[in-house]
């Protein structure tokens, strides 16, 4: 307060000094947005964290102790990882060669538009469509039997593979579009230079593109993994939610809305977040072992 008084007497006012540090009327426009995130994201998270340490039995770590002692609960972590890891890896491995092919196309728009479809429609609709399409009488089994690849219909629904396929259908486009944006960001003259020096396609990929792509691919892996990891609708609708595909989000949902144990639900949500964070940190940590630098060429 005295600073303001002094400021008025001689030298800049508080308003002017704040403006010099970048705070004026326009800066305050950020406040409603910050308040929203603090109130609806940070506060609930901290509240959930506190709540998870106040279990029904009264002990501090009761929820966590229960989670890690009951196989029905801690098993969900491995069930989730067993789905999310292979799916993310497969999506990434398919996305890389396709992105390299599509990057050369003039008219990418039609293809990218088609691929955006499953993302916008979402897992609920894809799961709904799968129920019929991959069913014993669906077009998938019929076509394979018609060309003679199958003698009896395969049953992918209500199990691990149903969820796996639904995660590929919604996850692959996501992974692909991210990969494509990274691949298109690499200056083509780098490839031309390598080709001029006599590198074949495989060598160009290995020696030029891969090192430049690794940081982007690490981020793509993380974002795709987090999506696959937090799957809920398809694990219920096309999976086997009581056994093989009882993923961790189902456990959290059941604790909250079927047992009405919000404390336990918060604990599971915190464990879920922690496992995700561990994987993301591990993947991004590996990234630092590789080249980091500009991928856009020397100029500019």
């Amino acid at each position: 307060m005295s600073a303001v008084m002094e400021g008025r007497a001689d030298g800049p006012t508080l308003r002017q000094r704040l403006a010099a540090r970048g705070i004026d009327g326009a800066t305050l426009l950020v406040l409603p947005c910050v308040a929203l995130i603090l109130g609806l994201f940070i506060y609930p998270f901290l509240y959930g964290l506190m709540l998870s340490f106040e279990p029904k039995d009264g002990s501090l770590f009761g929820n966590y102790a229960r989670f890690f002692s009951e196989p029905f609960l801690y098993g969900t972590i491995f069930k989730t990882l067993r789905l999310a890891f292979p799916v993310t890896l497969l999506n990434l491995l398919i996305a890389i060669p396709i992105a390299f092919r599509v990057r050369l196309l003039r008219r990418q728009r039609l293809l990218t538009t088609l691929l955006v479809l499953p993302i916008t429609l979402g897992t609920v609709l894809v799961a709904e469509g799968m129920l019929f399409y991959f069913g014993p009488q669906g077009w998938f089994n019929r076509s394979l039997m018609a060309v003679g690849l199958l003698s009896t219909p395969v049953s992918v629904l209500n199990g691990y593979w149903g969820v796996f396929i639904s995660l590929v259908l919604t996850g692959f486009p996501f992974t692909f579009l991210l990969t494509l944006s990274y691949v298109s960001g690499i200056d083509p003259s780098l490839e031309n230079a390598a080709a001029t020096l006599g590198a074949g396609p495989a060598a160009r990929f290995r020696e030029v593109f891969l090192p430049l792509l690794v940081p982007g691919l690490a981020i793509t892996f993380c974002l795709s993994f987090v999506q696959a990891y937090s799957v809920l609708p398809s694990a219920v609708l096309v999976g086997d939610p009581a056994n093989v595909t009882r993923v961790i989000s189902i456990a959290a949902y059941q604790a909250a809305f079927e047992e009405y144990d919000y404390s336990m639900a918060s604990a599971i949500a915190m464990i879920m977040g922690a496992v995700q964070l561990l994987v993301v940190v591990a993947v991004l940590g590996c990234r630092s072992l590789f080249y980091r630098g500009p991928a856009a060429g020397a100029k500019g």
């Binding site: 950020v30 947005c33 910050v34 995130i37 603090l38 609806l40 994201f41 940070i42 506060y43 609930p44 998270f45 509240y47 959930g48 964290l49 709540l51 974002l223 987090v226 999506q227 990891y229 937090s230 809920l232 989000s249 959290a252 949902y253 909250a256 919000y262 639900a265 918060s266 599971i268 949500a269 879920m272 977040g273 995700q276």
Partner: peptide, 24 residues
């Protein structure tokens, strides 16, 4: 700090923060 605050809800999947948020 504000930028970090804005990135967090986009990086954490909805189901993770949705459960504490729904509780609140």
């Amino acid at each position: 700090f504000v930028m970090l605050l804005l990135l967090l809800p986009l990086l954490v999947p909805p189901i993770t923060y949705g459960i504490p948020l729904a509780t609140v």
